[in-house]
Nucleic acid binder design. Sequence first.
DNA 1: CTTGACCCTAGAGTATACTCTAAGGTCTAA
DNA 2: TTAGACCTTAGAGTATACTCTAGGGTCAAG
Lengths: 152, 152
Amino acid sequence: MKIGELAKLSGLSAHTLRFYEKQGLIQASARSESNYRVYSQGDLATAKFIKRSREMGFSLEEVEVFLSIRADKPAHVCREAKDIAQLKITDVQQKIDDLQQVLVALHKLSDACCGGNESAEFCSIIEALEDGEGLSLAHSTQTHVLAKEQQA
Amino acid sequence: MKIGELAKLSGLSAHTLRFYEKQGLIQASARSESNYRVYSQGDLATAKFIKRSREMGFSLEEVEVFLSIRADKPAHVCREAKDIAQLKITDVQQKIDDLQQVLVALHKLSDACCGGNESAEFCSIIEALEDGEGLSLAHSTQTHVLAKEQQA
DNA sequence: CTTGACCCTAGAGTATACTCTAAGGTCTAA
DNA sequence: TTAGACCTTAGAGTATACTCTAGGGTCAAG
C-alpha cells in the first residue's frame, strides 16, 4: 500500500508518517518504480504500535526504545520496557497531582467572585492575584505545572 | 530598584522580566541615566501578580487580560475575570481526566509485566502495544493528552 | 585602573511533535 | 488529454514560554 492508505488505516497522517520516517521510527519496506513509498502489513502494525504508544503518553524517544525492543525481543529484557512504563506512571501521577492543586486554587479564586456585570473594582479574582492570599500552591517538582501544556 | 533586585524580590529572572516587557506585560516605570530599567514598588506588585497568575496556570495572554482589568478596574466587570477562570477550570479538569485515563492504561500495561531480567520475547508491554488489547483509551477532547507536555 | 558584578540590545536557540509549503512528478478515469 | 487525486523532497512554520548569547556599556570597591 502507499502512504495515503497507510495513513487511513493507521490513523496517522501521511505527513506524520514521513516525519516519523525522518526520526527513524518507521521505514517503508520498499519503493515503487516512481519512488513512492510502499508499505506492508507489518509496516501497518508498526504504525499502529507507534500510534498506541503515543496515545499512552510515551514520547517519540521512548517509542523508539519500545520499537527496538520489539524489533529484537530476545536481545532485550522485560525490565527495559517496564522501567520506561514505570517512569511514565510516576510522571503522569505527578502531573495529575500538580494539576489537582492548581484546580483547587482555581476554584478558590473563581468561587469567591460574583462573576456578574458588577464593576471589577472589588473583583476578588484580581484581588487574590494581587495579594496572593489563600492561593498557596504547595511547591511541586514542576514549578510551572501548566506552563508546558498551554500549547493545547 | 534595578532589574536584578526586582528579579530577586519577584522570583522571576531578569531575562524573564525583559521578555515580559517585550510581550507588553510589564514596563519599568523609568530609566536611569545609563539606560538601566528602574522599577517601583508598584512594578514589584505587578511582577508578583504575573508570577501568581502563571502559577495558577494562566497563559501570558490570559495574564494580559487580567492585567488590563487590574489597570482600570472600574472599566471592567467581574464576569470578564470569572469567565477566564472558569474556562481554565474546565481546561484543567479535562487535562486531569485525560491523564487519569492514561494512568489507568499505563497501570494495566505495566502491572502485567514482570519487569525482570527475563527475555522480552513475551513481554506483555510490547505485546499490549502490538495488539492494543485492554488498553482502550476513551477518546477525549484531546487526542494526544500527553503529547503537549512532554517537554517537561 | 582594573576586576567583577551588574546592566543594555537584538536576535538566536530550546523543547516537542508535528504541520504545512513550494515546486514538482505520477497515475487514473472520463 | 486533461483534471484531480495522489506522490516526492527539502525545508520552513507553528505553538508557548522562556533562556541564552554576543558584544558592549556602567559602576562601585580595592
